[in-house]
Design a protein around this nucleic acid. Structure first.
Lengths: 240, 240
DNA sequence: TCCTAATAGTGTTATTATGACACAAAGTAT
DNA sequence: ATACTTTGTGTCATAATAACACTATTAGGA
């Protein structure tokens, strides 16, 4: 049958629901954390979940993700990109739900959390100490997000989104080590950054225990756009 | 209000439709092509489009993509991965439609095309000679897919999915050149492949004009899994 | 005040990867 | 036989990487 504007019936087919879920990464005390909300309602009441919700009919997916993020946590103006779309039948007991997952990177010190009335609590969890029995397939989504963050760290400047405006090289290095789970060589790391021309010396120093660290900021021009900072090459294959 | 299994009403919210669209790449005469269908019905009747259709309530997204692919083109058993989800309001005049896009790589010589009754025609187009006025936002999806294919070619073995089981090194090299749009050095390319240990010599030779080319096949163990063949490093930055 | 611990930052070198290019090998066509 | 075409290898200068030793600058305690 030929459909025209006149006879097309938008309700003819049964439709799935569409949600957006947002994996929010931040650093706290130098460790990588994920923001989770504790659900108030069925299904999975009292279970921890990634913030998210249904997409409205008149908003884009990214707008929906940003709206949910702000509603449920008070967080706004952050780096965000689409991660993957999860749509297995049965992943939500209510009905067929297709979830478009995003991940966001935030500067924790610039953000104040707030709890919405959809959840009991909002909390940061270290990525290696996640709560048990997450709602839905959120554990899978989380692992997916962590893997993606790790791999993108190796060829993008994503890590910059997690740092305060001004920071020291040792701090940046510790973040890379934290996320990649691997020690890096100081000299080689510093040299890569110097050569990359990504950083700008603020002239300021940061006192701590030992010798004070120089503070840098990122050159704006390099953060956006397609410039690639590959902090190291692919690992040598040790298989064979 | 608290929702329970008893009072949850799945039809309470208005829902978007969800479709899958599949960008299908193949080689024909050594050039990269995309498979398109010509629409029969409103909207965009007679316009060329990426094969796709609505997701059924009881099938996964990837199952839906494979079903649509087979229904509309007769193509099956191919490499496929999720590309991105497009969901701008207004991208489909019928109603709010969210499209989960996939891309597939096929060995053209092993596949016979067929036309479904949903479309007037099915045709291969070279990626640099696409038809004008594609349906919906399919031009955007296509560009997205081509970019992704290019970038993944540089650090995966995706190109292998486009080739016949047995092939020569010059042929493989020409494919890389075709997709990347750039000449590669023979010696360096061959050396990378030899060192990668990805290939297995079949012992056979392929006669053509000049010296016969040795035929290779891929070691199965290396095609699947997370093994990475980086045929070259990132380009040097020419900016600054 | 002077030593020590702690942290920041630089220099050096062997090894490996890359890119450019010349050259040799093995067929076909005339 | 010889020219031509295409496949395949060798070599070398340069650049990137990894490993590790070393110097620098502060705080804090003896």
């Amino acid at each position: 049958m030929t459909e025209t504007a006149e006879n097309y019936d938008a309700t003819k087919y049964e439709r799935p629901s569409v949600t957006v879920d947002v994996v929010i990464f931040g650093l706290r005390s130098g460790r990588l954390h994920v923001l989770m909300v504790q659900r108030k309602h069925w299904p999975y009441a009292d279970h921890w979940a990634i913030p998210g919700g249904f997409v409205n009919m008149d908003e884009s997916l990214e707008m929906a993700a940003r709206r949910e993020l702000e509603e449920e946590t008070g967080v706004h103006d952050v780096y965000m990109e689409q991660l993957y779309t999860f749509g297995e039948p049965g992943r939500d007991p209510r009905t067929r739900v297709i979830s478009v997952a995003y991940f966001a990177l935030i500067r924790t010190e610039e953000q104040a959390l707030q709890v919405s009335d959809e959840s009991n609590a909002v909390r940061w969890f270290p990525v290696d100490e996640l709560p048990k029995d997450l709602a839905f397939d959120h554990e899978k989504i989380l692992r997916f997000a962590i893997d993606r963050l790790r791999s993108k760290l190796e060829y993008t400047t994503l890590a910059f989104q997690l740092l305060p405006k001004e920071f020291s090289l040792p701090k940046l290095k510790r973040i890379y080590e934290e996320i990649l789970g691997e020690k890096l060589d100081k000299a080689n790391f510093y040299r890569k950054l110097r050569d990359s021309d990504l950083l700008e010396d603020t002239g300021k120093l940061l006192n701590s225990r030992g010798r004070p660290a120089r503070l840098y900021r990122f050159r704006d021009s390099r953060i956006e756009g397609d410039f690639v900072f590959r902090y190291r090459e692919a690992k040598k294959k040790d298989e064979q």
